[in-house]
Design a protein around this nucleic acid. Structure first.
Lengths: 133, 133
DNA sequence: CAGTATCCTTAGCGATACTG
DNA sequence: CAGTATCGCTAAGGATACTG
């Protein structure tokens, strides 16, 4: 319960965090986060410094192209740091920044919700299919 | 704390919630949630029963088409209920189901993160732009 | 009021091949 | 090792017009 201009406001008002500016702030995040590989990469980088090839091996199914692109976006947004070592053969290590790390708890909240509810959602989808036949 | 091949492993192991099945469960949710309108609609429906036209007015910028499509998907996944009243003119009310409501806390976690970090992220993007000029 | 139907553009992604 | 470059597909979404 919260108070706004003296009135007691029920829980639903919290959702103004979501609807706030017409959803623009939330969407700014969703647009960066909700692509196919970002959260997987962030979760993988949570173990510390990781090299390009290690990421490639630890994330099944990702192509070099998408790994590079997603890492560039994460670097550009300041969630991931990229360190190049002047060696031969070249070595590049990626790591989460403080902001990158701070993304993990909310991501875990979503993952927890997923694990809890996805089975029911899939059942619901299947039932919906049957109805329209 | 857990041990892997004799080494002590810290918190990062929590992220197996995300990486678990190669990220399939999490992606099943992200795929439904991360489109442009879903979370906005869910947040708007948190106020209770809402009619189609009310949703249309309360969500700035959404087209009839996308409102219908997104609502259908939410209904199909069991997050939203749809009630048709046999009246003239027609009346249709949408509401969150229990599962739909349960999505709000994780969504708020993400929205909170967004509000806290998006300014810094945008600054980082701008700086990145400048560097490549 | 509460939708459908149609057309169209763009962004995301995969596959493949090549390189400093 | 750590990437680029190019091509091609598909799905998301917007604009507009129509309807039981």
């Amino acid at each position: 319960m919260r108070h706004v201009r003296g009135a007691v406001v029920s829980e639903y008002e919290h959702t103004c965090l979501i609807r706030g500016d017409g959803g623009r702030t939330l969407r700014a995040v969703l647009d960066r986060i909700c692509n196919k590989w970002t959260l997987l990469i962030v979760a993988t980088l949570d173990q510390g410094n990781v090299r390009f090839t290690d990421l490639h091996h630890q994330i099944p199914g990702i192509s070099q192209r998408m790994l590079t692109l997603t890492l560039r976006n994460l670097e550009r947004d300041g969630l991931v740091s990229r360190t190049v070592y002047a060696e031969v053969p070249p070595r590049v290590e990626y790591a989460l920044t403080a902001i990158g790390k701070s993304l993990i708890p909310p991501a875990l909240a979503l993952a927890g919700w997923a694990i809890e509810h996805v089975p029911h959602i899939e059942a619901s989808r299947a039932a919906y299919q049957d109805r329209s036949r």
